[in-house]
Simulated assay, not measured.
Amino acid sequence: MNNEKPVKPTLNPSDHLANERTFLAWIRTSIALMAFGFVVVKFALFIKQISIVLAGKVILPGKGYSATIGIFFVAIGALMALLAYFRYKHTEKQLTEHTYQPSFMLSLVLTLAIIIMSGLLIYYLLPSI
């Protein structure tokens, strides 16, 4: 009969620090997407205002979906920050319980969203070439 207590595995600080670095990378990326969206919206507004000043009327080709595209980028960036937080907390719990299983679903969904947004942006910009 063995009377020894089970040894509780020790927590590895480098795993937790790597999880935090990954979370911060997701946050930086989400901030970059939101900043890009903001610039797209404000640049469209700037072009509209400068055309009024120079020509006395709005001179913009097409329907002008820049504001919609910019707002979409800001929304995707905000959603990305929220999902990054949930992924961070879930991974932290798995690391603490020593049950970590990698999940690539968030990466796949966000990659597909960015590819779709890029395709729509290319489609929108092609007529202006």
Rank of each mutant, 00 (worst) to 15 (best):
S128T: 14
L33W: 01
L112H: 02
Q49V: 11
I71E: 02
T10C: 12
Y88D: 01
H16Q: 05
S107M: 10
M105T: 07
L106S: 07
L45G: 11
K42E: 13
M105C: 11
T68I: 15
I115T: 04
T22F: 10
A75H: 11
F38G: 15
A55K: 14
Q49M: 15
V53R: 11
E4I: 13
R87N: 12
A113I: 05
S107K: 00
S107D: 11
S128G: 07
T96N: 06
F73A: 12
A35T: 04
S66H: 05
E20T: 10
A35M: 08
E92T: 08
Y88N: 08
K89H: 11
L112W: 03
Q94E: 09
L83S: 09
T111C: 11
T29L: 15
S51R: 04
I27T: 05
S66C: 15
I27Y: 02
I47T: 06
L24K: 09
M117C: 06
L45R: 12
A84E: 00
F23A: 01
F72N: 09
I50Y: 07
K93A: 04
M1A: 10
L24G: 06
F46P: 04
G64W: 02
K42F: 12
V74P: 05
E97Y: 06
S14E: 11
L112P: 02
V58H: 08
L126P: 06
S66R: 02
I31F: 13
L108W: 08
T91W: 05
V74H: 05
T10W: 12
Y124I: 02
T29N: 11
S103Q: 07
H90Y: 14
P102Q: 04
T68V: 15
Q49H: 11
L120E: 10
Y65F: 15
I50S: 10
N12I: 05
K57P: 06
Y65M: 14
P6D: 07
G119T: 00
G119R: 04
G62C: 09
L120F: 08
I69H: 01
S128C: 06
T91E: 12
I50Q: 08
Y65W: 15
I129V: 10
T29A: 15
A35E: 00
A75E: 04
M105H: 03
F86D: 12
L17F: 14
S51T: 10
K57N: 11
I76H: 00
S118Y: 02
F23K: 02
L125F: 01
R28P: 06
S103C: 07
V109G: 03
